[in-house]
Design a protein around this nucleic acid. Structure first.
Length: 423
RNA sequence: GGAGAGAUGGCCGAGUAGGUCGAAGGCGCUCGCCUGCUAAGCGAGUAUACUGGGAAACCGGUAUCGAGGGUUCGAAUCCCUCUCUCUCCGCCA
């Protein structure tokens, strides 16, 4: 959610910034509703002040029969107030829906561009594997090794689910442990294990609702949502709280499964593990002082990169352009890992700063010092990493001519010393 | 699933035959005084949001006693619905 006072005073500037996201985001309704809302508020509150002072007088009088006229008058005033308040409620709802559906303003350092084609390569790491054979896609490798079973998962549930088996299941578990251990012991994050279902208020706090309900799995009774990312429950840990400045920055890491409808992506990535309805992810979430958020984004991105470096997987860092960043984000770096079978880089982590956009929605604040008014913190998060896609990258990058997989050295302690996955 | 109890400010905790209660008191915290140091003591202050005025300091209005609705001139106090917490019973990983 944007700052209403800021938009009120800088409507053109805000509109211009939003225009760089593409689409037609008009703020014309904002001014109208804002004015209407405030004028109703003034009328209603003036009457309420009148009513309050009259009530006080009535209270002082012992013999109520002497204030009959006043009581009758106030009855009318109350009815008028009700009228204004009903109208105000309607306007407020409209106004808040409008505010909730306006995306964040891109950060000045976010490159301007229309689509993902205009994202900017910031840096690359590692050298691409040289294979003296045709690299196989991960689904063929996994099927030959009998470590992933898509067909049976489809039988159990449906399309876009996967059953991991044997060394595959263990490798996934190893990756999760490795990532969590790295972030908690080397990068200063606190591990949390949150609920995988959240309520509507939490989804609204981080920006998935009200606009993106069709992307979510929803339970009907009670109405809960399966989390599409740990960002949701973890950022909401501090919803409606005033944090101590000395507590900042707060850094959490969490492994959770993530659930996504993937509506509207029916044709894409239908084979393999790239796009699933359920996948594991280790998430990094930070609550920081507003002055630190850009520096913290660089740090957080570095923490995600470290995972790829230790796994010796080649990747590149992309700065997403204004047309490609997410709804709540003001700046985003994507990490893209090399996939030999596709001869391209694919997203494996997305690291974003949100400014005070989420904090304002979710009411997450801090005080600069004891006496000052609460201010909104800045929030950030990033994948560190998407586990399923990491598994894909390992299978594809570490494959051998005979179809076996050499396990990255850092994972071997988590695999009981196993060095290679073979038939 | 059944029975019962509860939800008040940073925390604890008063407040139900509706009226001067944004809310006693205590703790904590901040500032000042006192004290050789520490402890103790004394005094003052200490919620949030929206909104009007002001360059600002600040001043005014409104709302908020879990959430929403109702009764009333007036509700923390009465009525209804919902949410959450706790206790006991049942069931269960």
């Amino acid at each position: 959610m944007l700052d209403t006072k800021f938009i009120r005073d800088n409507l053109d500037q805000a509109e211009a910034a939003l225009a760089t996201r593409g689409g037609n985001i008009s703020l014309s309704g904002f001014r109208e509703l804002d004015i209407k809302r405030r004028s109703l508020l003034t009328e209603s509150e003036t009457l309420k002040a009148l009513k309050n002072s009259a009530s006080e007088e009535i209270a002082k009088v012992k013999d109520k029969s002497t204030v009959k006229d006043k009581i009758a008058e106030m009855k009318e005033v109350s009815a008028k107030i009700k009228g204004f308040d009903d109208e105000l409620k309607t306007v407020d709802e409209e106004f808040s829906i409008l505010l909730m559906t306006i995306p964040n303003l891109p950060h000045p350092t976010t490159p301007v561009g229309k689509s993902e084609d205009e994202n900017v390569v910031v840096r690359s790491w590692g050298s691409l594997p040289k294979m003296a054979f045709e690299p196989k896609p991960h689904w063929d490798l996994a099927e030959d090794l009998d470590i992933l079973d898509f067909e049976r998962a489809a039988k159990i549930t449906g399309a876009r689910f996967c059953l991991s088996k044997g060394a595959g299941a263990r490798l996934e578990r190893a990756l999760i442990s490795f990532m969590l251990d790295l972030h908690t012991t080397q990068h200063g994050y606190t591990e949390v294990l949150p609920p995988f279902m959240v309520n509507r208020a939490s989804m609204t706090g981080t920006g998935q609702l009200p606009k993106f309900e069709e992307d979510l799995f929803r339970l009907v009774d009670p109405e809960y949502f399966l989390i599409p990312t740990a960002e949701v429950p973890v950022t909401n840990i501090h919803r409606d709280e005033i944090l101590k400045k000395t507590d900042l920055p707060i850094s959490y890491t969490a492994h959770t499964p993530c659930f996504r409808r993937e509506a509207g992506s029916y044709g894409k990535d239908t084979r393999g593990l790239i796009r699933q309805h359920q996948f594991n992810k280790v998430e990094l979430v930070k609550f920081v002082h507003p002055d630190e958020s850009q520096a913290e984004l660089e740090k957080l991105t570095g923490h995600a990169e470290k995972v790829l470096q230790l796994l010796e997987l080649p990747y590149r860092v992309m700065a997403l352009c204004s047309g490609d960043i997410g709804f709540s984000a003001c700046k985003t770096y994507d990490l893209e890992v090399w996939l030999p079978s596709q001869n391209t880089y694919r997203e494996i982590s997305s690291c974003s700063s949100f400014g005070d956009f989420q904090a304002r929605r979710a009411g997450i604040r801090f005080r600069e010092d004891e006496k000052s008014k609460p201010e909104f913190v800045h929030t950030l998060n990033g994948s560190g990493l998407a586990v399923g896609r990491t598994l894909v990258a390992i299978l594809e990058n570490c494959q051998q001519a005979d179809g076996s997989i050499v396990i990255p050295a850092v994972l071997r302690p988590y695999m009981g010393g196993m060095e290679k996955i073979t038939k």
